[in-house]
């Protein structure tokens, strides 16, 4: 209860990691949550063989839960193979956030993952590998 907005979460909100966007991104994708206006854009730079996330960065605005969870997610996925990202689930993000969220706020926490995955999948479809 007391630790909903605990220091780790607030720290990610105030000092977001992998934040501000990438100049030479391979993939850029943005979505917002129409219910509250939370907005997140994710820029991804893939390795030359297209299998690895070389660098990743997000930008956006919204509530603490949406922005801090995106920051945590960026830290998690930077340098990872795409196949790892595909395996990421809702529960993984909830574990990163590490606090109990009500249903309405789970949506906020999931925005970053949704943007990341949708961006990746759209890229894969456009480039004919799945």
């Amino acid at each position: 209860m007391e630790d909903l907005y605990r220091d780790n979460l607030l720290d990610h909100y105030e000092n977001p990691r992998h934040h501000g966007g990438l100049e030479n991104a391979t993939i850029s994708h943005e979505e917002s949550n129409p219910l509250c206006g939370d907005r997140i854009r994710v820029d991804i730079k893939l390795s030359s063989d297209g299998t690895q996330i070389e660098d990743v960065s997000f930008s956006g605005d919204g509530c603490i839960i949406s922005q801090a969870s995106a920051s945590m997610l960026m830290e998690e996925v930077a340098g990872k193979p795409i196949t790892d990202i595909q395996k990421l689930e809702r529960q993984d993000v909830l574990d990163m956030v590490g606090v109990q969220l009500t249903a309405a706020r789970v949506k906020c926490a999931m925005l970053g993952l949704k943007v990341l995955k949708t961006g990746l999948y759209q890229y894969m479809v456009d480039h004919h590998h799945s």
């Binding site: 907005y5 509250c36 509530c63 603490i64 309405a104 706020r105 906020c108």
Partner: peptide, 8 residues
């Protein structure tokens, strides 16, 4: 953000 306020 109003949602953070609402939750708190």
């Amino acid at each position: 953000h109003p949602h953070d306020l609402g939750t708190l």
